[in-house]
Design a protein around this nucleic acid. Structure first.
Lengths: 263, 263
DNA sequence: CCTGAGCGTTGCGTATCACACAACAGTATT
DNA sequence: AATACTGTTGTGTGATACGCAACGCTCAGG
């Protein structure tokens, strides 16, 4: 634990732990609660919170007196999203895909051992559109995620599948060896399909996007009600999604047909 | 400078300064550059960056070797936006407004002495839709901003107008006394209008939103090309925007007609 | 009204820890 | 090869962030 001793700054680590804590439960909490959960004195937390509040990273709710994440992180998010060049080139393609399919379109990029949604264009019959940008899911859950996973370099893919995992409370994580078959299937078909993995009533199709170096860096997916993914419509949807992914890859400088990461 | 001595944590302040710096220029920079600009040793910056990178707040670009903001801030942003209840209640109203007007609809909230965009529904003929959520503008610039400004409590309004301001390089900030007349006009009409203040080719109309305590906490605005805001259409647009704002205010618990902040 | 328990803030003293320094490794340009 | 940049990492020391305790505050409930 203390092996990488002074490669990092303790107080900053604590501040970031506070931020992560406020982000995880989502709900705001008091400084004393944070102090207990982090195992430090409440005066320390008070000073850290004051510093974070000055920067706009956390805000105090006037009504309840609790602390929560501040709008400053939204401002930061805006600049980082604005600098993601993949968003610039993908945006018109995604809009067109949404218009053609009349379903919800997502763009996801890899983030550590997860996949993060960075753009969502809600379809006409979407209910809960909000709170999706910035959401992360594991690489093996969901269409967009699996599309990304399947085209990782073999070493990374093997490492991910064999990595020791803790079984979540929901019991969703076991051994992932079964993924080898699904990955092969995805590579063969060129797209991944999700039949209610994340939400029972949401099916999705995802296809990989490759950057200029031929690495799979993102994925595009189309999500909708299960009825929309019947045998009749699925081939057309898959073709549309793969076409969009290919277009974006081209604009990122990827030579079509050269799937370097499959070599 | 050092008067509020140990009410804040220096190292965390420095870390946040790094983050702000990376956000401001938008462009990524090297650790040495950051060290020079902050006036600290590069080894300090190196350790701070390592800590921030572990948390996903900054990322190193493999190609250029520079540091930039990381996707971790996007994840944080997702949770804070998901907890903004005004987004939940406003979302359907905004979508309906966008559908009716066929223009771009924005929802803004106050953030310190600025206004932040927290939701944008792009219209059909939008060009650059991206990178608007999280963007901040001053309270007196733009339709949504001025709508919020005009309904601030008088004390805050006076403080804002009389606050000493530095003149920006673009020379946009001078004395703001002229705002008193415009504020009166906005309060009389019930909406604010922006004729190319922020971008020459973008006009907008904004109306205030009030929370359960009757405080003006947000605003909704409709933006589009100047041609769309001619005499013929402007009254209807203004009515639509004010109607949407009133609907959202109602759902936030504000009694219609009781504009407490105008008393 | 007083009490008690919860909250956050703030002086203070001390031990920790984060800093500057310097040396090192790596890379690109000369 | 040499220079000029990077970023990383040991090391010593002095600044500093920590825990403690006391304070002011609000709220709940005898």
């Amino acid at each position: 634990m203390r092996d990488d001793a002074h490669r990092s700054v303790q107080s900053v680590e604590r501040a970031l732990a506070i931020v992560q804590h406020l982000a995880d439960d989502g709900v705001e909490s008091t400084g004393s609660q944070l102090a207990r959960q982090l195992g430090v004195h409440k005066s320390t937390v008070s000073r850290l919170l004051a510093t974070l509040e000055d920067a706009g990273m956390v805000e105090r709710n006037d009504q309840t007196g609790g602390y929560g994440l501040g709008l400053g992180v939204v401002a930061l998010s805006g600049t980082v999203l604005g600098r993601l060049e993949i968003l610039r080139v993908a945006d018109p393609v995604l809009r067109r895909l949404a218009e053609i399919t009349q379903e919800t379109v997502n763009l996801s990029v890899r983030y550590r051992d997860k996949v993060m949604n960075v753009q969502q264009i809600p379809g006409p019959n979407v209910l809960r559109s909000r709170d999706w940008v910035g959401k992360t899911v594991f690489l093996h859950r969901g269409a967009g995620s699996k599309a990304l996973l399947a085209y990782l370099p073999d070493a990374e893919l093997r490492a991910y599948i064999n990595a020791p995992r803790v079984v979540n409370p929901d019991g969703q994580h076991g051994h992932l060896e079964y993924l080898w078959r699904e990955v092969a299937e995805i590579r063969r078909a060129g797209f991944a399909i999700n039949r209610g993995e994340l939400h029972p009533q949401v099916y999705a199709i995802g296809a990989p996007i490759f950057d200029g170096q031929g690495r799979c860096c993102a994925s595009v997916s189309v999500a909708g009600a299960p009825e929309a993914f019947g045998e009749a419509r699925l081939p057309e949807l898959a073709a549309r999604v793969m076409d969009a992914a290919r277009t974006i890859s081209q604009q990122l400088g990827h030579a079509v047909g050269r799937f370097a990461s499959m070599a």
